Amino acid sequence: MTHKIAILGASGYTGAELIRLIATHGGMEIAALGANSKAGQSMASVFPHLRHLDLPMLSKIDEIDFSGIDLCFCALPHKTSQEVISALPSHLRIVDLSADFRLRDPAEYEKWYGNPHAAVELQKEAVYGLTEFYRDQIATARLVAGTGCNAATGQYALRPLIAADAIDLDHIVLDLKCAVSGAGRSLRENLLHAELSEGYHGYAVGSVHRHMGEFDQEFSALAGRPVAVQFTPHLIPANRGILATTYVHGDAAQIHQVLADAYADEPFLQVLPYGEQPSTRHVRGSNFCHIGVTADRTAGRAIVIAALDNLTKGSSGQALQNANLMLNLDETTGLMLAPCFP
């Protein structure tokens, strides 16, 4: 059976990445592409790398006929998805790639995103979309909220360690580097080549980065008490990739074993041999996440590094993985592409 799919926000990076992945998916057909700002244009004119595909023309969202659509990906900007998804037909299953339904408490959403939640009732049925940890809930959900790409990377490094009580919860430092595509496709002065290249810098330093809300929510629920990691993201002059370096207090060999055991049966999470470190270049364009563990020079401290592609495993690949579960398809369908190297 082929499921008909719609993608809203198809003219953005995550929308294009969804199309690239679904093009190899035998169980899905793209029936509609929404992009209000580029309605009437072809995908070939917006993203020439997709010109070989036979795709629908881009159209305004309110002009799409959803009657024959089985599942809709919403790759829309933050603060937009709540209103749009609220107006979609009730039969649709939805995977949202924005931040609008990630935080379960509407008050926390307002705290981190600066405006009241516009779909509180819909929030109650949203399932957090970190596939490996919410697999059963995702399979039966109508609405799945994809995670932040930074939040996903940090959680893959830390969730099993928190759950196993393998690290000191009061001494977690997360130093993360993210490629520029994580900021989206909109034109901004600070993302111009001359402004960004040949250097990198921290941003949202301190307590203002929105993905902290996800870390607080997920880690505290796991631990059964408040957990506040020290987190600093950095913008690097690369197109794709996230590298999260986590400094923790605990036995490095035990930490490696906990992660290896936790992910032994996961198709996309690969724990490297002890002491080996991952690189973003080895996961580029793929749905894989590589995790490495090394002992610090000081006994009782360890370094855990996770690498993934922010557009694939951190966003669109994760969304497709969730959609496969929601449609009762093999979870890995369309996602076993090898990383692109060099």
Rank of each mutant, 00 (worst) to 15 (best):
L21F: 11
R102H: 06
K177V: 00
E121V: 02
P226H: 10
G224A: 07
N115F: 06
L272F: 09
I19A: 04
L71M: 09
A338S: 15
L269K: 03
D165E: 15
D70T: 07
W112I: 02
H52I: 03
S286H: 11
T140M: 13
I162A: 14
T14V: 09
L18P: 02
A118T: 07
T245Y: 00
G285E: 14
A204R: 14
V258N: 02
L88G: 05
A183N: 09
A338T: 14
S42D: 11
Y200E: 04
I94S: 01
V46F: 09
N328P: 06
L337V: 09
I138L: 06
V46W: 07
A10D: 13
Q257S: 13
R225D: 05
N239D: 15
R225V: 03
M28C: 14
G68L: 10
L325M: 08
D96N: 07
A44I: 09
I85F: 05
D296A: 13
E121N: 13
C74E: 00
D65T: 07
E266V: 12
P342T: 05
Q123H: 04
T332Q: 14
K313V: 00
P339H: 12
Q137C: 12
L18V: 07
R185D: 12
R142K: 15
G206N: 12
G34Q: 11
R20S: 05
L169Q: 15
I7E: 01
L337I: 13
A107H: 12
A119L: 07
L158C: 11
V180W: 03
D165G: 14
L158R: 03
G114D: 04
R188Y: 10
L222R: 08
H78R: 10
G154Y: 04
V173G: 05
A151F: 00
A157H: 01
L327C: 10
V271Q: 04
L308S: 00
E189G: 09
G184H: 01
M57Y: 05
L174Y: 14
T312N: 11
K79G: 02
T294F: 03
I138V: 12
H282P: 02
A264L: 13
L130Y: 03
V127Y: 01
E108S: 14
L325G: 04
Q230V: 08
C149M: 13
D175W: 04
L325Y: 05
M43Y: 09
V248M: 00
Y247D: 05
P237W: 15
L76M: 14
A319V: 10
F215N: 03
A152H: 09
E125F: 06
M326Y: 06
A31S: 14
